[in-house]
Design a protein around this nucleic acid. Structure first.
Lengths: 180, 180
DNA sequence: CGGTATATTCGGCATATACCGAATATTCCG
DNA sequence: CGGAATATTCGGTATATGCCGAATATACCG
């Protein structure tokens, strides 16, 4: 039966989504839910998602909240459907990446930057006070890190502020930059 | 005492490493171990790392194996130190990123690509057989994904093959690409 | 080749996480 | 405003994970 094969094929792609989720530190179930949504012909309700994936409705509810946090799905209500919530997948992967950079990576960079600044101050004082020469070494290390994080921050700013299609084309050209 | 402040500052940076590890889906303990190594004046042994971090030696041993897998640390032996192993941090972050792309992301891309190719074949057959028009929709989705993953693969190839300093400078120029 | 220093493996415990179903809260509509 | 439909929260359980210390394996040196 062809339609069985189609079903299998779709299932394998959803499997692949699960493994992807895993790699990026997300729960497998999120990959599955996202995958199911990705192939849905229309927005799905919590009950439909639960039915489709085999998870309890409560599980789906919390998972959806998290997936929304990552901007991987969007919640909608539909005219005449009362309170019932419907979910659609975000299919622009660049958008998802941007949101991740904006939310998670920026926060990481900020804490690190603050820690580094404090460390720099303390170490400068230590060096001036003629403390052991370990301080000088550490100061160098800290400054190296500062440079790395400054660049990361610039990159994050760049990416999160540019629209997806501009990024896509910039990355095409990026290839030439690396190669030349 | 200034040296207390220095100690505190170093500690805060190591803390920041822990949080970073967390964000990228690694264990906090890996961040701590890497951080301690980052500021070490010389390569550290398992016992020294255990002493410094408070983890059991066995814990450190397995963690080090994992950190090696990610190319975040390197294992060395030192002349006249017998069997004892010493560890050094990889300080070139680009190198670490490249290894991650090469090992993890490439594998993810491969499984997804295979799943998508299978799905494409099955769906094409279904469409030709005049199956329900859902197949046509799905085929479109699959092809969109293929494009995304093809581009990702090209990007991964590019980055993993270029030397770190070239990447760094290419990313400087990338900024102009996006902005212009 | 035997002994010693070191590394790794393994079983077990304690904690964290994923998931469930029942209980509660919220929204919408008559 | 009340009641029905839905979503969310919460407590409990099963499983996974992190970490430890003891037991085992491995490498080096005399």
């Amino acid at each position: 039966m062809t339609s069985d094969q189609v079903e299998d094929a779709r299932e394998r792609v959803v499997d692949a989504f699960e493994r992807s989720a895993e790699i990026y530190g997300l729960n497998r179930s999120y990959g599955r839910l996202y995958g199911v949504l990705y192939f849905a012909r229309e927005p799905l309700s919590l009950d439909e998602l639960a039915e489709e994936t085999g998870f309890a409705k409560s599980t789906v509810s919390t998972a959806m909240k998290e997936l929304e946090r990552f901007h991987m799905v969007h919640r909608r209500s539909i005219e005449g459907e009362g309170k019932r919530a419907f979910f659609e997948p975000e299919r622009d992967f660049w958008h998802i990446v941007k949101q991740f950079l904006d939310r998670e990576m920026r926060r990481e960079i900020d804490t690190m930057a603050r820690a580094l600044d404090d460390a720099e101050t303390a170490l400068e004082a230590a060096v001036d006070a003629g403390e052991d020469e370990r301080a000088a070494r550490d100061l160098e290390r800290v400054r190296d890190l500062q440079q790395v994080y400054d660049r990361s921050e610039a990159f994050v700013n760049l990416v999160t502020r540019a629209p997806s299609d501009r990024l896509r084309s910039a990355f095409e050209d990026f290839a030439d930059l690396v190669r030349r």
